[in-house]
Design a binder for these strands. Structure first.
Lengths: 339, 339
DNA sequence: CCAGAAAATGTAATCGATTTCAATGACGCT
DNA sequence: AGCGTCATTGAAATCGATTACATTTTCTGG
């Protein structure tokens, strides 16, 4: 058998019809235990594997889901992917990764993969929907899509997320409790909701402590390393530079810490830095980064679980997002202000 | 048209047969320019997209390739992925990412996806073949698989790689030229060829300089952060610890640098550290890491190009690997030895 | 030992596209 | 007008599985 065997080959060899083979292989109770066993053995012997195209054409199910992120290279997504994969695997689904690089064309493309039958559902972690007009405007709420990490308002999609505002507030309160008064914030891209919420948490902590936030203390980044450096330069060219930074993600925090060292300022001696995400390098960073940890595997697990529910036809309440808890990891990059 | 339109819907609306529609949509010269235009318009209007399962069932082509890595979370793979994707996209292929976590079961699974028709070809970056006996022993050379980064001997597969030994030699020569004599090596997992080659480069540079390499100066890691710390502890509990480390990848180098700081040794004041890979965080690391950079996008580009050649039926000479050049980035983690 | 229900299997339709082969129509040429 | 040629188009087979429906076999009770 040089060619890839098909169900017909097994049927001929076993002396039964293709229907019986199909039923036997899917462990249908309609076939005798003996024939089922015989067919299973034969399938293994021939090293048979069903053709996925044929199967999903007929069943209208691809048995795979799409996990769409901004940037696969971001180590942050790894644990989420693992959580998703483990849950998907249990249910017999495989996971396809999609990488958008914030490119709207690619975002639309992944949505199209849903329609093409490439995948049955999608976990969206880009914070964006494809631009309207591409045929997606209506009926989006009926698509098997779960939004994780990010927030997309008004689309009627189910969400799995953390309380960004609350986590940010906790992080800033940590800085305040160390004695810092002049605390600046490097935010993510605006007006994305995730960035807005983290900024809101920062503002609230400051307000609660009766601290002033001059406009110049809020600078906007884009979550990338270089942007952390750049924002940091801006903040430290101010007349009254901050003594602590709350940075909206770890990657920018790395950039900021690097830039501070370049400017001859010690972290945490001169400036304290808090990040957000707890990338796995953050504890090996110098100094080890104080940062907000998210339950990544659980996020993946919850999102995939929700998607499976939807795929099995359950009605999901989209107004009640699943909120998972964060943990503030206090490490070496924060200390009381000098003097 | 609430349902997803099929080719038949277009055919009815256009008053032609499905055959004509299929031909028109694939821009076959067999249809008049007018009907072709009319059908294209109609397709856009109905927002038609062909069902991939049906198409690939008939054409026996999935128009997608598999990119299999040890660990998607490793930022190292990002640029390679980008190179692969760009090249694939041009040729109309999409890229599916596979993540093995060094789990043989999952490695086999991705190979099976090839047979299932999920993908047409595969770029393998795990350095391993699935265990024999699963029906893969014979005919592997005929599978559309390209090995990138890693090396798999004797399988008759085409390779895209860098000259690991030469790059390692260059890195170690840099340390020697700074005046170091006691240079230790933290290797990758053995007996993987990539690790062996990097170690070989280290040994050769030492030999060429007439330097001794005690057995205790070669410790084996597994490419992960923690292993870098651990190996570092071993080396610095020696009677005569090294003054410089050549570490087989950046991630372990991070771990080693972290551990050195914990032990109160300055990098590069007390100990110089050289890594391998040039992760994008390496330049923001403290101190910025001296490391060997690989042409990642080009590796992805070359591997996908090779795969496309194979898929279009070209005969590939597997004995002549494609070798791409490396660059040693000299940064702040290396300096002359103290005194 | 037979009617009839239940269990096991087979036949053929089906999923939605591509493609082979046949049929049609338009056109030029004698 | 008649015929061959070429350009278009259509009808139907095909890819490899699943499954509705039909059929055969087995079992049960009377």
């Amino acid at each position: 058998m040089r060619e890839r065997p098909k169900i017909k080959d097994i049927a001929e060899r076993a002396g039964v019809s293709v229907a019986t083979v199909s039923r036997a292989l899917s462990d249908s109770p309609l076939v005798t235990t003996e024939t089922r066993q015989r067919i299973h053995d034969l399938a293994r012997e021939l090293n048979y594997r069903p053709n996925v195209s044929a199967r999903s054409l007929r069943t209208r199910r691809a048995m795979s889901v799409l996990l769409v992120v901004r940037d696969v290279g971001n180590p942050f997504y790894l644990d989420i992917l693992k959580g998703v994969e483990a849950t998907a695997r249990e249910a017999g689904y495989s996971v396809l990764m999609g990488n958008t690089e914030n490119d709207p064309a690619r975002e639309t493309e992944y949505f199209n993969m849903l329609r093409d039958g490439h995948a049955d559902g999608m976990i969206l972690m880009t914070g964006k929907l494809p631009p309207a007009g591409g045929g997606w405007t209506g009926g989006l709420a009926r698509l098997p899509v779960v939004v994780a990490l990010e927030i997309i308002e008004g689309a009627g999609l189910p969400h799995v997320q953390v309380d960004n505002a609350d986590a940010a507030r906790e992080a800033v309160e940590h800085l305040i409790s160390l004695g810092h008064r002049r605390i600046a914030h490097i935010s993510g891209p605006l007006p994305e909701l995730m960035s807005l919420h983290r900024r809101e948490g920062y503002r609230q902590a400051m307000r609660d402590a009766g601290l002033d936030v001059p406009d110049t203390y809020e600078v906007r980044g884009d979550f990338l390393l270089e942007s952390g450096q750049e924002c940091c330069r801006k903040l430290f060219s101010l007349r009254e530079p901050p003594t602590a930074l709350f940075v909206a993600n770890d990657e920018m925090a790395y950039g900021a810490a690097y830039e501070l060292r370049r400017m001859g300022r010690d972290v945490p001696g001169d400036v304290s830095v808090v990040g957000f995400d707890d990338l796995y390098l953050s504890k090996a960073f110098y100094p080890p980064l104080t940062t907000v940890g998210q339950p990544r595997a659980e996020i993946g697990h919850a999102a995939m679980g929700l998607l499976l529910d939807i795929l099995s036809g359950a009605e999901i309440d989209c107004d009640e997002p699943i909120i998972l808890p964060t943990v503030l990891h206090i490490r070496g990059s924060t200390a009381p202000p000098r003097g």
